[in-house]
């Protein structure tokens, strides 16, 4: 018997999500078990089963930590956009009429 990880997708707009595990002698049987265990109430329209031994992950999940300060990758690094916007607008309004015209 092998352990299979089960992934389920509820529709075409959703990603596959892990929903549990089953143990089975082969993939065909694993799919049948997964159908009975995880989709009795139309919770999914698509099922995947993957042998657990075929899944690879980091031994040490701390390796997933971001090594240095990379706050510039996140939206919250740009929160001062509101004050910046009003500063830039008042600067723009202060310019002479000629400089503000597009021609």
């Amino acid at each position: 018997m092998e352990t299979f990880e089960v992934f389920r997708r509820s529709g075409h707009k959703e990603p596959f999500e892990h929903c549990g595990t089953v143990s089975a002698p082969d993939a065909e049987m694993a799919l049948l078990e997964a159908k009975e265990c995880f989709t009795r109430r139309r919770e999914g329209q698509h099922l995947w089963v993957v042998k657990r031994s075929d899944i690879h992950s980091f031994k040490d999940e701390s390796l997933l930590e971001i090594a240095a300060d990379k706050s510039y990758r996140f939206a919250e690094a740009y929160r001062d956009v509101v004050t910046k916007r009003s500063q830039a607008r008042s600067r723009g309004r202060a310019l002479p009429e000629k400089a503000r015209s597009s021609t």
């Binding site: 352990t3 549990g20 595990t21 089953v22 143990s23 009975e36 265990c37 009795r40």
Partner: peptide, 21 residues
């Protein structure tokens, strides 16, 4: 059937702690 299904899910989780079904 649901109750038996719950047993299947739980035995599987317990198995991963080192005791066979």
């Amino acid at each position: 059937q649901d109750e038996v299904g719950h047993a299947q899910l739980l035995y599987r989780v317990a198995e991963d702690l080192g005791k066979s079904r």
